[in-house]
Deep mutational scan, measured.
Amino acid sequence: TTVHLNGVTYTFPNPEEARKFVEKLAKTLNLKVEVHNGTYHIE
């Protein structure tokens, strides 16, 4: 599972880890999250 954040790409072997990371980040920084083909894009 891949996460794109400010031009940096993070790869998680575990989709659940990626989801938790994204949710925590989005909540902390009040960001918008979009998912395209299983890839998270955070703005």
Rank of each mutant, 00 (worst) to 15 (best):
F21H: 01
T1R: 12
K32Y: 07
G38E: 03
H4A: 06
N6K: 07
K24V: 13
F21P: 00
P13Q: 10
N30L: 06
Y40A: 04
H4Q: 07
A26N: 06
L29F: 06
L5Y: 15
Y40D: 04
K20W: 08
V33T: 01
N6G: 09
E17K: 11
A18I: 04
V35I: 13
R19Q: 07
H36S: 05
T1I: 06
E34C: 15
T39K: 07
E17M: 13
L31P: 02
K20P: 00
N30H: 11
E43N: 10
A18H: 01
N37I: 02
Y40H: 04
L5T: 03
E17N: 10
T1S: 10
N14S: 11
I42T: 04
G7E: 08
V8P: 01
T9F: 11
V35L: 12
R19W: 13
V3A: 03
K32E: 04
T28G: 07
N30T: 03
H4L: 12
E16M: 09
N37M: 03
K20D: 08
E34H: 14
V35C: 15
T2C: 15
N14H: 07
T1V: 08
K20E: 09
T2Q: 13
P15D: 12
N14E: 06
V8W: 13
Y40F: 09
N37C: 15
I42S: 03
G7K: 09
Y40T: 05
L29M: 10
A26G: 05
E43Y: 15
N30V: 05
T9V: 14
A26I: 11
E34I: 14
V22G: 01
V3C: 13
L31K: 03
H4M: 10
A26F: 05
P13L: 10
A18F: 05
V22E: 00
H4Y: 13
V35A: 02
K24A: 12
K20S: 09
N30S: 04
K24R: 11
H41M: 07
P15K: 09
E17P: 01
K27C: 15
E34V: 14
E17Q: 11
L25M: 05
T9A: 11
E34S: 13
E23I: 08
V8T: 09
L31N: 02
T1F: 05
E43M: 14
K20L: 10
G38L: 02
Y10W: 11
H41F: 15
V35Q: 04
V33L: 05
L29H: 15
V33R: 00
T1P: 06
N6C: 15
F12A: 00
H36E: 05
F21M: 03
